[in-house]
């Protein structure tokens, strides 16, 4: 269907040097006054923001550095030499965190999706599977992650079971992360599946698609698109919780920092590790925001407000 041409206001004769937009439209005197006013307000807002930020920073820095304990804080937490010393070990440990996170993320997505699908199955045959999925998510969402880590990391090796108990410790740590996070991610996927309107399933079934085909080709593609922002949020969380495997004795970024602090009670390596973790999660957080905004997650239909 051809789109009707935009009704063009006759260009008022003016001395404006603004180049004519397509169709010879030039903003009216009134509109130019509005734009000028808005520009003025925008400049004023920016100046105010910069000034207030600078003043606040100056006050904070002044208050902190002039306080009596500051030299000791700086020496113990922010020692540049200690930071340089510990950086290689901490960074090497961080590489382990990254690998654990990436592998766990893949397993968590697959397992979470499988659990979510199990919970949506209908029919008496699937009752045990539905029950299992529900019990699984209830259990592992309720258990503190650190408890699962301790049970798997120390408990399972103590069983001395052939084939199970003699894995590297990091495997137990990863397994604990997977168990806990797949329960959360399963609920995110389930929410996504349930958010797809029943009429979509009806349309798919009415075309002759089976229940499984309707799920695979119509419901899941829409559900997964919708839950990408909350999923990414869970992965930001997984990324930092991968540091918890250090309690099992795995030398990750946090453990490496701890070892480094133990020699001289200088806690700068923790700051280094923390800084590196934040550097890792910030891009992922920004990605989450970007994806969310692209989907109109925030303020849909907000218009000018």
């Amino acid at each position: 269907m051809a789109r009707a041409p935009r009704p063009s206001t006759p260009a008022a004769p003016s001395a404006s040097s603004v180049p004519a937009a397509g169709g010879g439209w030039q903003p009216s005197e009134l509109q130019r006054q509005r734009l000028a006013y808005r520009r003025g307000r925008a400049v004023r807002s920016a100046v105010t923001a910069v000034l207030s930020t600078l003043v606040l920073l100056a006050v904070l820095i002044g208050a902190v550095t002039s306080s009596p304990g500051w030299p000791r804080v700086r020496e113990t937490f922010f020692s540049w030499d200690k930071a340089k010393d510990s950086f290689p070990e901490v960074a090497a440990g961080l590489w382990l965190n990254i690998r654990v996170m990436l592998i766990c993320a893949v397993v968590v997505v697959l397992l979470g999706l499988a659990l979510a699908i199990l919970r949506t199955l209908r029919g008496p045959v699937f009752f045990p599977l539905r029950m299992f999925a529900a019990a699984y998510t209830d259990l592992f969402r309720g258990l503190p992650l650190i408890l699962v880590l301790l049970l798997l990391g120390f408990g399972v090796p103590a069983l001395s079971l052939a084939g199970v108990s003699f894995q590297p410790v990091v495997v137990y740590g990863g397994a604990a992360l997977v168990l806990t996070y797949s329960a959360y991610v399963a609920e995110v996927f389930r929410a996504g599946i349930e958010s797809v309107h029943p009429s979509q399933r009806a349309a798919a079934r009415s075309l002759g698609l089976s229940n499984a085909q309707a799920l695979r080709y119509v419901v899941l593609p829409q559900a997964i698109r919708r839950v990408v922002p909350p999923l990414l949020n869970d992965f930001v969380s997984l990324q930092k919780d991968s540091g918890l495997i250090s309690i099992l004795g795995v030398i990750d970024a946090i453990r490496a920092a701890q070892i480094s602090t133990a020699t001289d009670f200088n806690y700068t390596p923790y700051i280094v590790a923390g800084f590196l973790f934040v550097c890792l999660t910030i891009p992922l957080t920004r990605l989450t925001d970007w994806v969310a905004r692209r989907q109109g997650w925030y303020g849909t239909g907000g218009g000018a407000v």
Partner: peptide
């Protein structure tokens, strides 16, 4: 259907 029910992702 009254509400079309096209698949929006396709």
């Amino acid at each position: 259907f009254q509400a079309f029910n096209l698949f929006p992702h396709l």
